[in-house]
Amino acid sequence: MAQSTWSVSEPRKLAFDEPVSALNVRIVNGTVNVVGTDEGSARLEISSIEGPPLIVTQDGPTLTVAYEDLPWKGFLKWFDRKSWQRNAVVSLAVPAESTVEVGVVGAGAVVSGIRGRTTVRGVNGDTTLVGLSGSITADTVSGNLEAQAVTGDLVFKSVSGDLTVIEGAATSVRADSVSGDMVLDLDTSGRPADIRLTSVSGEIGIRLEHPSADARVEANTTSGTVSNAFEDLRVSGQWGAKSITGTLGAGNGTLRATTVSGSIALLRRPAREDGPTDATGPGSTGPTTEKVL
């Protein structure tokens, strides 16, 4: 298949007849929306654009929407502020099985319904991921990442961006941040989990399904506080370093959380058949005993 290229300098819609299995988007300021569909082809709408044109290229099954001067390699080191005088609102519908790569500088990104691998790189734009079942890799400088109802393995790295996982079912989460906070609400439904979180000064909060959580737990903070809502786990340390250790379920999985000065909280997520998550509401498991140091 011959390569097709469009230079888009004003609002425009494009439909691609040839099959698409890989998407690469790189923009500065504005918004990127990517949604997975059951169709084999892709559709693009650029509803607003200011500054230099976006170059749209279809090369075989790969669709690229990007600025010529914004390469994927070394993306997080792109700080040419003179070139930041641009803005675009880009929406794409691609086959759900596609591999998706999104790079944003000062732009927000929303990716939903993708079953293929998703990679996000952001300098200072926030990203929302919804209903992704493929593996996820996200690298940011100061951008925040919110993931809702994701089931694929998640790897997150940031300097100061926060990580929030809501109603997640991923059994593998690796997150590393300097000062960003991490809040994870996970339902692994008895499957062994592999969760490893590291931060220097960020706070870490993890909410696990009870009683089906299955992991060996080791959570440590050098100077922060710890909070534990699981009777099977032990809290140790009165002054300085504190830790939460023990085994949940059969202990087939791993939960490790480490922070230097941030606090750590392990919370119980009632099983779905227990009804409302309000600990004092009807059908609840009753008040949760929580030890805080």
Rank of each mutant, 00 (worst) to 15 (best):
P61T: 14
L54W: 02
V35G: 06
I49S: 04
R26K: 13
D69Q: 10
R81Q: 12
T57C: 00
E50M: 03
L63F: 09
A42V: 06
F79S: 10
W78T: 11
K77N: 15
I55P: 00
D59Q: 11
P53Y: 05
E68Q: 13
P71D: 14
I49F: 03
N24D: 12
L63M: 07
L54P: 00
V34P: 02
E68R: 13
E39R: 14
T62Y: 01
P71G: 08
N29S: 06
L23E: 06
R81I: 14
S47A: 15
K82T: 14
S21Y: 05
P61V: 12
S48E: 14
V28A: 05
I27S: 02
T62Q: 15
K73P: 00
E45K: 12
S41Y: 10
W72G: 06
G60L: 11
A22L: 05
G60V: 13
T62G: 06
D80E: 15
S83R: 08
I49N: 03
G74C: 09
D38W: 09
E68N: 11
S48N: 14
G30P: 11
P61D: 11
E39M: 07
L23C: 09
N29R: 07
V25F: 05
V20K: 02
E39D: 14
V25P: 01
L54D: 00
I27T: 07
L70I: 15
P71Y: 08
E39Q: 13
R81C: 02
G74E: 15
N24Y: 06
V32F: 00
D59F: 07
D38K: 15
L44F: 04
T64G: 07
D80I: 14
I27C: 04
T57E: 02
R43S: 13
G40K: 07
R43V: 09
T57Q: 01
G74V: 12
N33I: 10
L44P: 01
A66F: 04
N29W: 02
A42R: 01
V65T: 13
P61E: 11
S83A: 06
S48T: 14
I27L: 08
T31P: 00
A42W: 02
F79I: 10
A22C: 05
N29D: 08
I49T: 05
N33E: 15
R81T: 15
V25E: 04
G30K: 10
I55M: 04
P71N: 12
G36T: 12
V65A: 10
D69T: 09
D80V: 13
F79C: 05
T64I: 14
P19Q: 01
A66G: 10
V20Y: 00
V28C: 09
F75V: 02
V65R: 06
V25K: 02
G51S: 07
V34K: 03
S41M: 12
G40Q: 10
E50R: 07
V35E: 07
L54N: 01
T31E: 06
E39P: 02
V34F: 07
L23I: 10
D69F: 11
A66M: 08
S83P: 00
V56L: 01
E68W: 03
P52F: 01
S47D: 14
V25N: 02
I27V: 15
V28L: 05
